[in-house]
Design a protein around this nucleic acid. Sequence first.
DNA 1: ATCAAACATGCAATAGATTTGCATTCCCCT
DNA 2: AGGGGAATGCAAATCTATTGCATGTTTGAT
Lengths: 142, 142
Amino acid sequence: MCLQCDYENLLKRARLEATDNRLRVLAVVGNNSSPLSAGDIFNTLQRSSAINRVTVYRILDLLVAHGLVDRISTGGRAAYYGLAPNEHHRPHPHFYCKRCGQMECLNPESLTLAGDAFQKTFSGQIDKVEIRVDGICKNCMH
Amino acid sequence: MCLQCDYENLLKRARLEATDNRLRVLAVVGNNSSPLSAGDIFNTLQRSSAINRVTVYRILDLLVAHGLVDRISTGGRAAYYGLAPNEHHRPHPHFYCKRCGQMECLNPESLTLAGDAFQKTFSGQIDKVEIRVDGICKNCMH
DNA sequence: ATCAAACATGCAATAGATTTGCATTCCCCT
DNA sequence: AGGGGAATGCAAATCTATTGCATGTTTGAT
């Protein structure tokens, strides 16, 4: 969730045209408290006004490529999307409930990595580190 | 990779019939130094003698459900499979090269989590924690 | 202001990974 | 030997994502 983010500005800073569709996608991703699947995003947008599913995929790809949005893998089939870390959002781990498919953002401090040494010894390019906790959420435990 | 594992025994201990196909799947997964996709596994098996693709998926699901094999997500589309942690294998992070799709096992010590506190405060069931580093491997950097 | 090039979007078709339904075969227990 | 449940195979369906091509829109140099 990002109430401090000016999506139009975010796009401009990335030198991307701030088209209507892009703003809509970014708003859905950014205003949700946890990551969503491309399908979720498409359905949400569809409710307010028509958009093509492919357009959603393409915009998500674009936003990921430009680092505005993060593609997060789940224990399930589809990728989820959330706002990428920035000055308002520190990188953080996620919890994935294999029962209901809901993904939840965890506190940045809840799981911290001691990986400084690793970065120095690894001889490839590191783009990101993803930490995901899989299990069953409180609601699904009944 | 597991040279110390007796796959037939592993299956028996999980109360699973040690059928030929299961042993073959388990051997391919276990003898490889890094996780493989279901497609990779199918192709490898196919080379020695015929097996149905669906059977491979079903066996993998079964082995995952019984904790013999781990399903590991990648930055890409398909899930990868590796031997689950056991007395011979500690849990460890993975590196995924987005260029060639190769997945690599990292040293268990290379990235360690400080998550004890988290387990205590989280009110759901935790099955596993997955750590994945995404980037470009040494070979693909040229 | 004008026009071409570059970009954004939509639609239909395709691709890749996985799952389902149902028929067949195999294996264990009596 | 024979009945019942598990394991396997095959075809079709499903879900997610991508590609090719046509059309509409914006931008930037003149």
